[in-house]
C-alpha cells in the first residue's frame, strides 16, 4: 500500500514537472549498465589494462619496426672468458692469466639498451618485439576460442533448454561426458600426434584451441540452458506464446537477449582463463613452438637455462607481467560487468 502511494506520488511529480514533454526519457537498460560499469574504478582499470595490451600487441609491431619476431640480432658479440692458472716454479708463484676472445655471430642475452629496449634472449631475438608478437597470439587465440565456445554453448544450451525432454537429456549427458574428460593428458596426446604429423608450428596452436573449445563449451551450454529453463516459464514468454509468435522469434528475440548479461560476464571471465591456458600450453612446449613467440614460450626459456633465470630477468619477467595484466584485466572487466548487469542493483 505504502509503495503504491509512493509510486503514484512519483508519477504525479514526474507529470507535474514535465507535463507534455516528449523528450523526457529515462535511461535504457543498456545505457544504465554502461554508466554503472564506468562508475566502478576497478572495471575501468581492467578496461585500460586490456585496451593497453591490445594497442601494444597489434599497433606496437606496426610502429616499432626495428626488429622482427624471428629476426636475429646478427651484429655479433665478442665473449671474453678469463682463465687463471697458477704455477709454482722454484718456490716462486706465477699466475698465468689467459683471456680467450670468442667472436659469436649472434648478439644474445644483451642487456636492455637503446638498441634493444628489453635486451635480447638466449638466441638473440629482441625481447620487446617478441612480447608484442606473443601478445598477438595470446589475444587472437583466446578470442577465437571464447567466440567458438560461446556460439557452440548458446546453440546447444538453447536447444536443450527450449525443447527439453529427450533432446535436453542427450545434450546434457554429452556435456557430462565432456566435463569428465581430463583436459591436459588428452592435450599431451594430441600434441604428440600433431608433432608426428608435421603440422606447421604456426597453426598447431589454433588446432589446440579448437580442442579446447570442444572440451569447454559444456560450461556455457549449461549456463544458457539454466537461464532459458527459468525464462521459459516467465509470464512474458507465455504472453509471447499467446501472441502466436514463431519459435525462432521467441528464442532469438525474447530468450537470447535475456541470457546476454550472464553470457557477456561468462565470456569476459573465460577470456582470462583461455589466456592462461594458452600460456600453460606454450610453457609446456605444447602450444606455439620456437622460433615463434608466445608469452608462455618466452618464459619456457628458464626451464632449460639456469643462467637466464638468475641473471637475465629482462628475458622472462616481462612476459609474466603481460600474462598477469591480461588475466587480471579480463577478470576485472568480467566482475565489473557482473555488477553492472545485476538487475537488483538500483543505482
Amino acid at each position: 500500500m505504502d509503495e503504491n502511494t509512493k509510486n503514484e506520488a512519483l508519477e504525479q511529480s514526474v507529470e507535474s514537472e514535465v507535463p507534455h514533454d516528449k523528450t523526457v526519457r529515462l535511461m535504457s537498460p543498456t545505457r544504465m549498465v554502461v554508466r554503472r560499469f564506468f562508475r566502478s574504478k576497478l572495471s575501468v582499470v581492467g578496461l585500460i589494462m586490456v585496451v593497453g595490451l591490445f594497442i601494444f600487441s597489434f599497433l606496437g609491431p606496426v610502429i616499432y619496426t626495428q626488429w622482427g619476431e624471428i629476426q636475429l640480432d646478427e651484429s655479433g658479440k665478442t665473449e671474453y672468458s678469463v682463465s687463471e692458472t697458477t704455477y709454482t716454479v722454484n718456490g716462486e708463484e706465477y699466475t698465468l692469466r689467459q683471456t680467450t676472445e670468442k667472436y659469436l655471430k649472434d648478439n644474445f642475452l644483451a642487456p636492455p639498451s637503446a638498441e634493444h629496449i628489453l635486451g635480447t634472449d638466449n638466441e638473440g631475438y629482441d625481447v620487446f618485439v617478441r612480447l608484442m608478437y606473443g601478445g598477438r597470439i595470446s589475444l587472437i587465440v583466446s578470442f577465437i576460442a571464447v567466440f567458438l565456445i560461446t556460439i557452440l554453448g548458446v546453440i546447444m544450451g538453447g536447444i536443450a533448454g527450449y525443447f527439453g525432454g529427450a533432446i535436453d537429456n542427450v545434450i546434457m549427458r554429452l556435456c557430462d561426458v565432456l566435463i569428465c574428460l581430463p583436459g591436459i593428458p588428452i592435450l599431451l596426446i594430441i600434441s604428440t600426434i600433431l608433432d608426428a604429423s608435421g603440422i606447421d608450428a604456426k597453426y598447431r596452436i589454433y588446432l589446440l584451441m579448437i580442442y579446447l573449445t570442444f572440451i569447454s563449451w559444456p560450461g556455457t551450454a549449461r549456463l544458457v540452458r539454466g537461464q532459458i529453463l527459468s525464462l521459459r516459464e516467465q509470464e512474458y514468454m507465455i504472453a509471447a506464446e499467446a501472441m502466436g509468435f514463431s519459435t525462432s522469434r521467441k528464442i532469438f528475440k525474447h530468450l537470447v537477449p535475456n541470457v546476454m548479461p550472464q553470457l557477456i560476464v561468462q565470456m569476459s571471465l573465460s577470456l582470462g582463463s583461455m589466456i592462461l591456458y594458452e600460456a600453460t600450453l606454450s610453457y609446456l612446449n605444447l602450444g606455439v613452438k620456437a622460433p615463434y613467440a608466445a608469452w608462455g614460450t618466452m618464459i619456457n626459456i628458464i626451464s632449460t637455462n639456469q643462467d637466464v633465470l638468475q641473471n637475465h630477468l629482462n628475458v622472462w619477467v616481462p612476459a609474466g607481467i603481460c600474462i598477469v595484466i591480461a588475466v587480471l584485466g579480463f577478470n576485472f572487466i568480467g566482475d565489473g560487468l557482473r555488477d553492472a548487469l545485476d538487475p537488483k542493483a538500483r543505482r
Binding site: P29, Q234, E235, Y236, I238, A239, A240, A242, M243, G244, S246, H254, P257, N258, P343
Partner: peptide, 22 residues
C-alpha cells in the same frame, strides 16, 4: 493456431513478470 491467436488474448495476473524487461 497462429492465425487464431490474434482473435483471442490473455491478460495476466502479475503485471510485473508478464512484460519483457528489455
Amino acid at each position: 493456431m497462429r492465425d487464431i491467436r490474434k482473435k483471442m488474448q490473455i491478460i495476466f495476473q502479475d503485471p510485473y513478470s508478464s512484460l519483457p524487461p528489455r
